[in-house]
Write a protein that binds this DNA or RNA. Structure first.
Lengths: 175, 175
DNA sequence: AATAGCATGTAAGAAGTTACATGATTTC
DNA sequence: GAAATCATGTAACTTCTTACATGCTATT
């Protein structure tokens, strides 16, 4: 269900897009909340077309198919947003790894945590840069969320590395 | 792979646990980065036992199986933490929904965003409360991460609702 | 003795990943 | 004309969810 909703959302936001465009979107602003590979996206779009949630226009040079959300698709998206009590679980492999790094010895965990902090700081910076002067509100909101999450992760990694270092320096209790 | 790693991590952290304990753990705190249902956990633990990553002790009254991580399992976990370049994608259905709420009309989106803010504030509060005086560092770090994420989500929802409201009040451009 | 919670499992089906496969267009 | 990127698709496999199924123990 979620992929379908994510695609409807992206199409609602952007107006018109090809499967390729949508794939790119998932690869990029992956500060995002969802992602998928093209091998899952193309068949899903075909199914949505068959259901009347989107229409396709076989356009352009290279057998490109441009999709657009229909009224029925918009209604479906709206219903899901308003009525659904979403599953409150997350799956974040990079986050899981970061979470578990403190299990390693300080010698190993501290540098890896610092590397994570750098990674997330850099990603945050990149997001800040691509903020153009004129932007639709929703894009701005989503960008802002990306920045907040990257900041939180970077901050956590730094805090945690500092704490581990402090405790390792004062050696003593593994508490 | 990630489920296996998550289970190894939890077992490394907690020393000994049953499939049931691990299931509960996923429902509670660590749902932050990964989660799984018992129907996936039990078979996975059996497989890990067969591979020598964990040992099981058939204990207690109700056919309970207590698992413990082995040296080989610890090595596997360590290798994954140190050597893996993890997939940097997230799957968060609740986050996706929140992300898309601004697509609705202000009348609908604003109350739903405020409800999200309340939800995440409450979750954060609950996490803060269960912080006991004496706690292992790693649990403290993970709790801290949970708090930061809940805060970020709550803050984003509030900010976004405020902005939508402000724009709707000054009506004008849908930018 | 009924209810809630502990405790484990299996099977069918949906969702997601990896690998294979093809061909057009743009850029160097 | 070679390489990069645009653009779409299918097949096999793995992972995850939902539903079904069983039985024990503690509490009221």
């Amino acid at each position: 269900m979620s992929l379908r909703i994510a695609l409807l959302g992206l199409l609602k936001e952007s107006g018109r897009a090809s499967g390729y465009d949508l794939t790119k979107h998932f690869e990029m602003s992956s500060a995002n909340m969802w992602s998928a590979k093209h091998s899952q996206i193309y068949p899903e779009l075909r199914k949505m077309e068959a259901d009347g949630a989107v229409t396709a226009e076989e356009g352009g040079a290279r057998g490109k198919r441009i999709y657009e959300i229909t009224v029925s698709g918009t209604e479906e998206l709206r219903r899901w947003l308003v009525e659904t009590d979403p599953v409150r679980t997350t799956r974040n492999e990079a986050g899981l790894r970061m979470f578990l790094l403190p299990l390693l010895r300080p010698q190993e965990s501290v540098p890896l945590l610092r590397a994570e902090a750098l990674h997330y700081t850099a990603r945050k910076e990149r997001l800040c840069e691509l903020r153009p002067r004129k932007m639709r509100s929703i894009d701005r909101y989503q960008l802002r969320m990306g920045e907040m999450i990257m900041s939180a992760f970077a901050e956590w990694a730094t805090e945690t590395a500092d704490d581990i270092e402090r405790r390792a320096a004062g050696d003593v209790e593994e508490d």
